[in-house]
Each structure stands twice: as C-alpha cells, then as structure tokens.
Amino acid sequence: MSSLARWEHFQHQADIGVRGMGATPEEAFEMTALALTGVVTDPALVEPREAVKLACDAPDLELLLVDWLNALIYEMSTRSLLFGRYAVTIEGERLEGTAWGEPVDRQKHKPAVEVKGATYTELKVARENGLWIAQCVVDV
C-alpha cells in the first residue's frame, strides 16, 4: 500500500458518498471499497477470515468502479459477509478483485445500515495532482 492510500465519506443529502484515493486506480478502487465497508461498520472490526474472488468488465473506469462496488454489495448481501481488506488488478476493461472478510456479527460489527446499490451520482475516477480518486454516492 502506498502512502497516498486512504478513504473517506462525503456528503449527500439523503445518502452517503464513498471516496478512495491512491497512487494507482487499483489502489483507489481498494480504498473506495473500504469506504463502502465504512458505511456499514468500522472496517478495522472485520477480520479477513475468508476470501471472495470477483471480476467485472466495463468500457470505462467510471462504469468499472460502479460495477466493482455493486459486485461487492451483491456478495455482502447474498453471503451475509462484511469485508475488511481488498486487492484489485485492472487490465484494460477488466477488473479482478479479491475481498477478505467474515460473516456479519451483529454484536461485534454493530452494522449501521445496509447498502442498496452504488449510483452514478457524483461518480468520478480521475487523476488529480498525481493522486487517483475514485468516488460515487451509494444508496442506503
């Protein structure tokens, strides 16, 4: 992980924005995924006990970000998992990722809210002053 890697939330009136930053698009995507976990719980509380592999294809990086987050939302929902660590590779239009996590434990994770989907609102994947930023609003 580079020294540039970090994540944060940003304001949306009804919902919440997720933003990841890093030295590469891959790292920014990993951080955005951590911000997604951060909507539900503190990512530090999630132990990487099992791994889920996923892949998606999209014609541009912005659509790819939405697809990546929606693929994670699907896995979280259908497997009742939370993820605390991510690894992403992007080659051309294809993203391959691994998410490490564990089953939701209400006592331990105290999940705040469930995420319905990633949206195209405030969607941006761009390099600004040497820093890759990947962000969008998620519907909760």
């Binding site: 014609p59 659509l63 939405v66 697809d67 929606n70 939302i73 699907y74 929902s77 259908t78 319905k116 989907g117 990633a118 949206t119 195209y120 519907d139």
Partner: peptide, 17 residues
C-alpha cells in the same frame, strides 16, 4: 428489498450503456 435493489442496479447500467 434485495430484489428491487438488484433490478434497479442491473437496468440502470443497461440503460446507461
């Protein structure tokens, strides 16, 4: 619930493309 969220997600993408 999940069904509506997934239908929304999938068709939104198809309509964008």
């Amino acid at each position: 619930r999940g069904l509506g969220h997934q239908i929304g997600t999938e068709f939104l993408r198809r309509m964008v493309v």
